[in-house]
Simulated assay, not measured.
Amino acid sequence: MARMHTRRRGSSGSDRPVADDPPEWSDVDPDDIEARVVELAEQGHDPSGIGLKLRDEGVKGVPVPDVKAATGKKVTEILEDNDAAPEIPEDLRNLMERAVRLRRHVEENGQDMQNKRAMQNTEAKIRRLVDYYRGDELDEDFVYTYDTAVDILEG
């Protein structure tokens, strides 16, 4: 399948193992994992960053390769249960950060048409994601603008 805004195809990545059970060498208590997830969220880490920290550092020195296999819940579900979930989804926040950065760049460099196009593509992706999340993760009347993105990211 081709990329959304170019004609190129992406390179395929590696697949995760099919196993549903956590490996024998990673026998961490699910309650300890959940406590560590909440602790990392309070330190300001995003859900994907929490997964990487658990994979690399682990809990009490034991790595956790897959949080869902070990606990039966995804990282975001654990955060929602403990009222530590981010107010805006991580993918939307990352796109908003990129759009704000690109808008500032284009304002300073008016002749940079390539990044102007990249900004337009990024904002189009944001609008599609807002339509997807509207009602569930976002308010019904949420509309993306540059000013709302700046307010959300600074607040």
Rank of each mutant, 00 (worst) to 15 (best):
A2G: 08
L54C: 09
D81Y: 04
M4P: 00
D83Q: 13
D139S: 14
E123L: 00
L95T: 00
L153H: 12
G135P: 02
P65Y: 07
A149G: 06
M1A: 14
G61N: 10
E87N: 10
V62A: 07
G58L: 09
D29L: 09
V100N: 01
M1Y: 11
G61K: 04
E108M: 09
R104Y: 10
E90F: 06
G135A: 07
V75G: 05
V106T: 15
R3Q: 12
Q43R: 15
D151S: 13
E57M: 13
S48E: 15
T145A: 01
D27G: 05
M113G: 11
A19C: 09
A19F: 07
E97N: 09
L92D: 03
L153T: 06
A85S: 13
L95Y: 02
A69K: 07
V18N: 07
I33C: 05
I126M: 07
P23C: 03
Y146A: 02
L79W: 02
M96D: 01
D32G: 09
G58T: 09
D20H: 12
V37M: 12
A149R: 01
D147P: 01
H105I: 08
P30E: 14
A41K: 03
V106S: 04
S12F: 10
M1P: 10
E140A: 12
D15C: 08
V130A: 00
E108Y: 07
V62T: 15
P22Y: 07
V59I: 14
D27N: 15
K53D: 12
